[in-house]
Each structure stands twice: as structure tokens, then as C-alpha cells.
């Protein structure tokens, strides 16, 4: 098992090196310093600026800098803030929305998928699937605007319950439900429809397998068949689905963060791209790549834990 993990780690090192190199080249195609300094600059000023920012050094030297994960570089646009501080400040708001949202979405959609597969072809199944299609067809923006209007604005105005904020963020667990619950519910609502359909398809596919009939022929109850035999086999696609969304969780949900004015990573990166805040963009994207690769490795390890056949290969 450990050699399997080590092998996966080793495989991914060249992948990471390649990604970082590609990224650095891409970010330097348009000279970042020249576009930051605007139109009225002299050649000397620009060279001096490049020198002071360390961007005049050979690319290889800069490459090793990025690989060392040196996050103590100053942001160009946020005075006095290092990239590290910006990262640390924004990761918590992001996670406090995306993590509960993912958990809630997965639990709800897997449960609905199980119910649907259990009553496959019957009325309950059809109603649930119609609802799922409706749920996934409505735009994210509609949910956000309706949520803000009815959930935050109208609810506070009409009743005296000030349950949700229209926007903003305060840290601390006691403020969580006021600022974060509404975005969490909205992003769950958006994702549940799609995920339910995906998980139901997985369950339906598994329920047609031969080993299901074997289990029934042994005298297993329908619930045993579903929750023991089928669910464990369905875990592989379920894990894949959850794990592929994991890196995006850490980067936050851009739309929600922008509309709800939450200072998460999605919004910070979005702003940095707009303002051409070069060190922030470069560091955040590098971090994102690393997280992506780590979650891929984690996925592979989880596969091996769930499916005994994987360990051999």
C-alpha cells in the first residue's frame, strides 16, 4: 500500500514541474511589469522596476524560486500585504462555504439517488428525476438573486427574523450561519440536481450487475443488497466525482463570493487577474496546481482502499 502511494507521488513530480514551467512562461508572454506601469514609462524605469522585483533574473532562477513555494513576496496592488497573508486570509472564507456545501450536496444527492434507484421506474423515481432536471437547469444566478431577495432581503423586511445577510463576511463560528448558510444552501441547490442524476446512473448501472442477483439469490434483503453490495461498488465513481471537485472547493466559488461579497480565494484571484497583480496570480495558480495534483493522488489512494483490484496495477 505504501509503495503504491510512493509510486503515485513520484509519478506526479514531473507533472508538477511541467505545469509550473508552462505557467511561468504563459504569465510572461505579456510582460507583467510593462503592463503594470502603464503607458507613460521610460525604458530605464521599467528595467529598474524589473530588477527590483527580481523579474530580470534568468528564468531558471525564478523557476526555482517558484518551486520553493516562497510566498513572502509582496502583492503589487495591496499595499503591505504578502501573498502568504492574502492566501491565509482568503482560504478560510472560501472553505467555510465550499466544504459544508460539498458535504451537504454529496449526502443529499447520494441519498436521493439511492431512493431513486431503489424505486427505479416507479412514480417516486420519475418525480425525483424530473425535479433533479429542473434543479440543474436553472441558472446559478437565478438561485443567487432569488436567494438574496427572498432569503435575505424580504425575510428580514417582512418578518423580524434577520436570518441571513445579503452579503459580507465575518469570521468566527457564531457568525457562520448569518453570513455563510445562505450561500451554502444555494450552492447545494445548484449542485444537487446534477449530482443526483450522476449518482443514480451509477447505482442503476451497478444494480444490473451479476453479483447483485447472486446476493439476492443468497437471501439478502433488498436494503442489504443496496447498501452493502451495491454502494461499496458504487464508491469508485462516487469518490471520483467528489475528489475532482475538491481542488475547486479550495479555490472557492467565484460567483458566490462575488455576489455575496465574501473575501474568499475565488474573489481574490479574480481581482488579482483584473488588476494584473502578477505575484498573486502566479502564486495562487501554482498553489492551485499543487492542490490539484495532491487531490489526484488522494483519489488514487482512496481507489485502492475501496477496490481491491486497483492495488495490483
Amino acid at each position: 500500500m505504501w509503495s503504491y502511494v510512493a509510486r503515485k507521488l513520484l509519478y506526479n513530480i514531473p507533472v508538477y514541474l511541467g505545469i509550473v514551467l508552462l505557467l511561468m512562461v504563459a504569465l510572461r508572454v505579456n510582460d507583467p511589469v510593462s503592463s503594470m506601469m502603464g503607458k507613460n514609462k521610460s525604458q530605464e524605469d521599467m528595467l529598474a522596476m524589473k530588477e527590483s522585483l527580481g523579474l530580470a533574473r534568468p528564468l531558471l532562477e525564478q523557476y526555482f524560486d517558484v518551486l520553493r513555494f516562497d510566498l513572502n513576496v509582496m502583492s503589487w496592488k495591496n499595499q503591505g500585504l504578502t501573498v502568504k497573508q492574502m492566501f491565509m486570509d482568503s482560504i478560510k472564507p472560501s472553505l467555510s462555504i465550499t466544504l459544508p456545501a460539498l458535504t451537504l450536496t454529496s449526502i443529499i444527492s447520494i441519498s436521493i439517488a439511492l431512493i431513486s434507484a431503489f424505486f427505479r421506474g416507479r412514480r417516486i423515481d420519475r418525480i425525483l428525476m424530473v425535479l433533479a432536471v429542473i434543479g440543474m437547469s436553472v441558472s446559478f444566478l437565478v438561485y443567487i438573486i432569488f436567494g438574496q431577495y427572498y432569503g435575505a432581503y424580504l425575510l428580514t423586511k417582512e418578518t423580524s427574523w434577520d436570518l441571513f445577510a445579503i452579503g459580507g463576511y465575518e469570521s468566527g463560528i457564531e457568525n457562520w450561519s448569518y453570513y455563510c448558510l445562505l450561500p451554502v444552501l444555494i450552492s447545494t441547490l445548484v449542485a444537487v440536481g446534477y449530482d443526483t442524476r450522476f449518482y443514480r446512473a451509477v447505482m442503476v448501472e451497478e444494480s444490473g450487475r451479476d453479483y447483485i442477483i447472486t446476493a439476492k439469490a443468497k437471501g439478502a434483503t433488498k436494503t442489504k443488497v443496496m447498501f452493502v453490495h451495491m454502494l461499496k461498488n458504487a464508491m469508485i465513481p462516487i469518490i471520483t466525482r467528489i475528489m475532482t471537485t475538491l481542488p475547486f472547493l479550495i479555490m472557492g466559488s467565484l460567483l458566490l463570493e462575488v455576489y455575496f461579497n465574501i473575501p474568499g480565494m475565488g474573489r481574490v484571484l479574480y481581482k488579482a487577474i483584473q488588476e494584473q497583480d502578477f505575484p498573486v496570480v502566479q502564486s495562487f495558480v501554482t498553489i492551485f496546481a499543487a492542490i490539484f495534483i495532491l487531490s489526484n493522488i488522494l483519489t488514487d489512494v482512496l481507489y485502492a482502499l475501496v477496490d481491491p483490484r486497483v492495488r495490483l496495477s
Partner: peptide, 8 residues
């Protein structure tokens, strides 16, 4: 080949 549950 397929009648036994692969994960148990």
C-alpha cells in the same frame, strides 16, 4: 467472473 462481488 462477474457473479461474485469484486470488492468483498
Amino acid at each position: 467472473m462477474t457473479s461474485l462481488n469484486p470488492v468483498f
